[in-house]
Nucleic acid binder design. Structure first.
Lengths: 347, 347
DNA sequence: TTGGCAATCTGTAACGTTTCAGTATATTGA
DNA sequence: TCAATATACTGAAACGTTACAGATTGCCAA
């Protein structure tokens, strides 16, 4: 049995959802005319156009997504591809809000496509492209040579990356200037008399790992400070690991007197490790950390923070994908967001 | 021009996505037979069935979502409806992961439907139902008398709520036992000699506000402790507000010596407020807090925590909606998760 | 032999949309 | 006056799927 049980031969007053046919019947026009009138096609008379649009608005006509999608291939969907193990909590929530903010008054829906450690990060992207499930894709955890970007570029599907690539290929991205962040963090620490600095890096392999390290290293030589290697740790690791390794490090006599940390969660662990070693934040060591919500100052007032907005990233990425879908040049859809000043405790 | 530019009259070797027609051509059968063979219809010969399924797997056939959706009305989508202002960060990320975990090996996609303060919470739900955009819906911030639940129940669209309602209507839900949480928190505090307790409540109006308050109040009288009213604060407020109000409260001579807090973010603010007033956690006052990630003990080791898993909530909610869609009785799809013990600092 | 029936398979129509190839009417140019 | 042309509209087909109502074949009972 068909799911429509009303007599549909001649549009009874049925309370079913209105379609083009309904509108055609009500206006006395053909469905073709109605379809074109709704999209302001030039070959439709001005009055007819207004009339159709009025009726459509009155009865709350909304195009059937499946109809459009089947006919045109346009899904009106953009997909956010997320790693279910390594994304930061605040990243997920803020970026989603940023994206939805932008697509709110468009016909687009946002679908979340997850993948896990065990999978090739290319899998979800391949799935989306092969099944034609989205008009545009947003990916994070971008690598200098990113197979996902290459793949989508080859297939011609619009996408935007959170973070840049370095393949000589041009595509939309939004990135935070992590070079500037690390650079300024070092300078700030130097200004407070710190000279032996350790860096808590982003995950090795991601593009912004390189940016961060470069900013850090360049600033070190500029201010004449030295690096205390801490390569065993990155922000992808568990709280416990980071804490333990930090405590180990801080018990050595050649310990650092300053940290630059790329993520708030890692910073909590760093601080815990510092305190495990019996040292005191602000006195024995200073820590500059990125954060995406205003929580670190509550945690320890001595922390020095730089803000990075993932909500902004979400908005920019959504704007970029929509722009590309809309025909803009990919190269014109690249944004870089500058870090805030280093903020000490204010009050 | 049609988006398909290949000569499609007689299935050339075109690298287009395979459809039922492709399969029909390859197997020499009719599309109807192929369609039925793929869904194990009984009137298809066993060998034919195997043959079709083999070929389908070989060439990686995947049903076209738009085709199915247009024909059957089934969207294979479930929607998570979120408030973009008030949801907790960790809630969003964990619940999404929980949901995707469950739908990973189903044909379902997850779409995120946001709404903001300015909107009626019913708006997004109405939109989903009117446009038939999802087969099932998950909502949070559930109220005792929830118009959204009532609305969806009337329209017969499967949904699950995070939190219970109290309208005498039966529907799937997942809830955390906040009565037990508040109750045990009070008992624990009493066990540590605390007798003047304040409650940092969930948002007034949500069902679990009542549960929490009841658990708190009942336990108070059972252990003979008293309540220090703190009604000006709930976990929906800003960090700054909570912090300020807590500091005010703690400067009064009739201040509490114990807090029960319903959310980790609020707890950070509470502690900050306590310390603003010059008091010390663990000595002057104890705080029991719910948390959804293991961060509070890093924050202040003296904090007493109870864990609530939003990932579990996401999974359970997804299971519930899918169950309802699959025809299970709504009443059989209700789960309540018990709080962990109160966990003091362990090392 | 014939009729009936079960077992398999098939063509057609429909879901709602857009595109293509028109048609009908009014308007213009010579 | 007649044809050419612009204007405003229209029906049919197609996207990929499933439901309905057959169609074909073989087999068995009468």
């Amino acid at each position: 049995m068909d799911r429509q049980r009303t007599d549909r031969n001649e549009e009874a007053s049925a309370q079913e959802r209105p379609t083009l046919k309904t509108l055609a019947f009500m206006t006395g026009l053909g469905v073709t005319t109605v379809s074109r009138a709704l999209k302001d096609a030039p070959e439709i008379g001005a009055e007819t156009r207004r009339r159709v649009q009025l009726v459509a608005k009155q009865i709350g006509y909304r195009p059937n997504r499946a109809g459009v999608r089947l006919r045109t291939g346009k899904t009106n969907v953009i997909s956010l591809v997320l790693n279910t193990e390594h994304e930061l909590m605040s990243f997920v929530s803020d970026i989603i809000y940023g994206v939805t903010e932008v697509i709110a008054d468009t016909p687009y829906h946002l679908i979340v496509t997850p993948y896990s450690r065990s999978q090739d990060p290319l899998d979800p992207v391949r799935y989306l492209v092969e099944t034609g499930s989205a008009d545009g894709v947003i990916i994070s955890r971008t690598q200098p040579n990113d197979p996902r970007a290459r793949y989508m570029l080859e297939r011609g599907i619009p996408f935007a990356t959170h973070g840049r690539t370095d393949m000589g290929l041009v595509h939309p991205y939004h990135d935070f200037d992590n070079y500037a962040f690390a650079n300024e963090a070092v300078r700030y620490l130097a200004g407070r008399g710190r000279s032996r600095l350790a860096l808590v890096t982003p995950p090795v392999g991601l593009t912004y790992y390189g940016h961060t390290v470069n900013g850090f290293v360049d600033a070190l030589s500029e201010v004449g400070a030295s690096e205390v290697p801490f390569n065993t740790v990155s922000i992808d690791q568990s709280i416990e690991q980071i804490r333990m390794r930090t405590a180990q490090l801080m018990r050595r006599k050649d310990r650092p007197d300053g940290f630059v940390s790329s993520a708030a969660a890692a910073t909590l662990a760093i601080v815990a490790g510092i305190e495990d070693a019996g040292l005191k934040l602000g006195r024995d060591v200073d820590v500059v950390s990125k954060q995406s919500s205003e929580l670190l100052h509550l945690f320890r007032r001595e922390l020095l923070v730089v803000n990075e907005s993932f909500r902004l990233a979400g908005s920019e990425l959504a704007r970029a994908v929509l722009g590309w879908i809309g025909g803009a040049a990919p190269g014109s859809l690249q944004t870089l967001s500058k870090p805030s000043e280093v903020l000490p405790y204010r009050g």
